[in-house]
């Protein structure tokens, strides 16, 4: 197995799927000769030509909806939204059109559109280039939302997304793009909707996704010295999310912390916490801990003070481990 960077795994997934299926194509700003703002599509223009690697004008709203129309007529477009913040100008396409065209037309159409978008802070890119908006889309029936945390998942989840006949939003954390990891060559599919227990532990379950998986693992290493065992669950997919894996773990540890980089209020962690509260309250031995960013835009300066990470997760897990009702 080769060790490659996350961003290369994304490119590998797209290249392999374009090779496999002539209906797969890529649309986005600067995806052609420049190879994408973060380099995901490097080399694809040379391999597949400008018919299949399509540089768009700067009009996210319309090229996203264009992809929806093209998908309804038999294509399988991958759309790159350069920064997740820019997806706000595509809300009609994402929410009113892409998410609903199958349902409201009585299941007549398939909408195999993949929307890939780099999200999150850590690059000092400021309030309009750093947001984590995944929960908005997980709230919309008709969409799937995945958040690969490792190079292997970046490839495996993206390949599954491209083969999925539903619209799938793939949220890639920008701070992970340079991360290296082992990635299976060729056919490697990670099913959408299956979480991964990436560290076993008996005391507190930490449910997270994306970049925060690594922060949770760092917190787990730290707490091990204190005798607190964290079980870290990488959801990988937040819509649908793997309730069973989370519930099984909470039934074992009886303590739960949810953690994400998006602002804490109304984040996907709130849904996980609410579901556990609703269906598994009897298993809980302590209040659920929640970690997320403070309720404010991502600042340019002092970004590290803003971003939640291992410190906050460790603190919440410690509290959960020691707390009770």
């Amino acid at each position: 197995m080769a060790e490659i960077r996350y961003i290369l795994a994304v490119g590998q997934a797209m290249g392999e799927e374009m090779e496999r299926d002539p209906d797969v194509l890529l649309l986005g700003e600067d995806v052609g000769a420049p190879g994408g703002s973060f380099g995901a599509s490097r080399g694809l223009l040379e391999r597949f030509g400008s018919r299949r690697v399509v540089d768009t004008p700067i009009c996210e709203a319309s090229f996203l909806s264009l992809a929806a129309g093209a998908a309804a007529c038999g294509l399988r477009p991958i759309v790159e939204i350069m920064f997740m913040d820019f997806i706000t100008v595509c809300m009609d396409g994402m929410v009113n059109q892409l998410a609903k065209m199958r349902y409201m037309f009585g299941n007549q159409y398939k909408l195999p559109v993949v929307v890939r978008t780099p999200a999150g802070g850590g690059l000092n890119a400021g309030p309009q280039h750093s947001q984590c908006l995944e929960a908005w889309f997980a709230h919309v029936p008709g969409l799937k939302v995945v958040m690969p945390a490792t190079p292997a998942d970046a490839k495996g989840l993206l390949k599954s997304a491209i083969r999925d006949d539903n619209p799938v939003l793939v949220v890639e954390h920008k701070a992970l793009h340079a991360m290296k990891g082992e990635v299976p060559e060729g056919e490697h599919l990670v099913p959408i909707g299956e979480a991964r227990v990436c560290r076993q532990g008996g005391d507190v379950t930490v449910v997270t996704a994306g970049r925060m998986v690594h922060e949770a693992l760092a917190a787990a290493a730290e707490l091990e010295a204190e005798g607190i065992g964290l079980e870290v669950i990488d959801l990988r997919s937040i819509q649908p999310w793997d309730k069973q894996t989370v519930f099984d773990s909470v039934a074992k540890t009886h303590r739960l912390v949810v953690a994400h980089e998006a602002v804490k209020a109304f984040g996907f962690g709130a849904e996980v916490a609410a579901a556990v509260g609703e269906e598994l309250m009897d298993e809980l031995d302590a209040p659920i801990g929640r970690v997320g960013a403070p309720f404010m835009p991502v600042p340019f300066s002092l970004e590290q003070a803003y971003l939640p990470g291992a410190v906050q997760i460790a603190q919440a897990a410690r509290q959960a481990a020691q707390g009770g009702f």
């Binding site: 709203a61 319309s62 264009l66 929806a68 129309g69 093209a70």
Partner: peptide, 11 residues
């Protein structure tokens, strides 16, 4: 309008 333009793209 963009959806139908997408249909034309598929054509």
């Amino acid at each position: 309008i963009p959806i139908t333009t997408g249909a034309a793209f598929a054509c």
